[in-house]
Design a protein around this nucleic acid. Structure first.
Lengths: 250, 250
DNA sequence: TATATAAAATGACGTAACGTCAGCATCAAG
DNA sequence: CTTGATGCTGACGTTACGTCATTTTATATA
């Protein structure tokens, strides 16, 4: 005979929870004192732990009650249902995660002041009509080039290559104040050039086309490329010019 | 001037929701008629869509209200928090999923009558030790070095420098197959070395210490550093050795 | 202008799983 | 018999609305 405080300790829940479960008829203690104090047995504790488990895998108290009460319960069915539900929840959370990462990347590059713009941009992208994006994509590129386009950094991606593009652009923006010939900037540019060669080798006319798109913010946004400010682009061009010149001379 | 039914259509929520948001002070319509009918403007609709977005990524109405009201809000902080929360939820759901799958398996083997036994087995797996972490951090580093530690890439970090570290490690891992002397690898290593000099100049013994921690996966994980596999570390050391040698010779 | 009808308003109650507080009863020890 | 610790019940609060029930307003037609 265990009183309620000890039972709460043993099962890891609060006293209130035990009383609540008693009240809703989920788990009544084996006996009570004359004064009405609840007295739990070891079996009650075990039952409680089972309830905790079923709760952890996502069943509601109402469902658990039904399961424990009815003798012949279709376990396979409810477990399958629950599995489907859990999988759906995971999908949703993944979407949330990707939206949040977009926001993180957006703010990292645009600075905190640009959050409103960042949200506006992302809102546009994550609106339910994904077909518009496909349409504009189809209108500009041929099938062969669409495969290449997948290698271009899109904001939501976690893949290391895309991630570094975003990181490099962010650093470029952050250190713009040092001027285009600063070593730190030149290192970034060199790294960008390396990556350009590695990822898009021999596809120069494709790159050119892409470049033009980036110069038009509206089009870039439609196509889900990471939007870059005009001043960053100008700065980048300038730094790149210097990089090429040094390469030719030294 | 749009009345409430149309506004509900445009934003994809119910009429009740709009009235509710008005009541709790989250979004009041721009004006009302004499009789008290709510009249929304286009700006109201846009605001509503922003609210919908913030809701979709998991913020509560209370949080959204605070965000929209206060002018200077720490977006990075709340977004980071939210991301952490979402990731934690995903972890939980994954655990649920695996438990559910085990249950399916268990019932398939034991038969429906054995479900009690199946649950008992699986219950064993779910213990909960989440202590430590701050402790281990305090025990290894002095205060001065903890400040430096903040510059080290942690998994939840959003700033471009940290992001690139993660991206570089990811790429290293991905292209390990090419061997340590491949140009692509050597470029990554060079970039890492540049960043090391830029971010941690003159803190060599700290770097060494960090390196040791990274060699111990358990400790590294506890401290929330980006987890690196042993083989990646070995590979990186080898590639770095080659990089240094080439620098000395050429 | 009177009326029929659609649409809008407010208010109350319900949800899931408890937390928190108030006020009173009971238990074990001294 | 007192006292302090513990337990009891009941009520209200939480989130983001859904679902009535009742009443008021807006608009179109006769």
């Amino acid at each position: 005979m265990i009183h309620i405080h000890r039972a709460a300790e043993l099962t890891g829940v609060t006293v209130r929870t035990l009383r609540y479960y008693d009240k809703i008829g989920l788990l009544a203690p084996a006996s009570k004192t004359e004064g009405g104090h609840r007295l739990y047995t070891n079996d009650d504790i075990k039952c409680m732990q089972q309830i905790q488990f079923l709760k952890r895998i996502g069943f509601s108290l109402e469902e658990i009650k039904k399961m424990l009460n009815s003798e012949d319960w279709d376990w396979t069915e409810s477990i399958k249902d629950q599995l489907a539900y859990v999988l759906k929840e995971q999908e949703q959370l993944k979407q949330m995660e990707s939206s949040l990462r977009e926001l993180v990347h957006g703010i990292a590059i645009e600075g905190e002041e640009g959050w409103m713009a960042a949200i506006a941009k992302i809102m546009h992208l994550s609106s339910k009509d994904t077909r518009l994006k496909q349409d504009s994509l189809n209108s500009v590129f041929q099938p062969r080039e669409k495969k290449l386009l997948e290698k271009v950094p899109s904001m939501a991606s976690e893949d290391p290559d895309s991630l570094e593009w975003i990181a490099l652009i962010g650093q470029l923006k952050r250190h713009m104040g040092a001027g285009p010939q600063a070593p730190r900037i030149q290192h970034i540019i060199r790294r960008m050039d390396e990556k350009r060669l590695e990822n898009f080798e021999g596809e120069d006319e494709f790159i050119d086309q892409l470049w033009e798109i980036r110069m038009s913010p509206a089009l870039s946004e439609k196509m889900n490329l990471y939007p870059m400010d005009q001043d960053v682009l100008k700065f980048m061009e300038e730094a790149y010019r210097i990089y090429i010149l040094r390469g030719e001379n030294g």
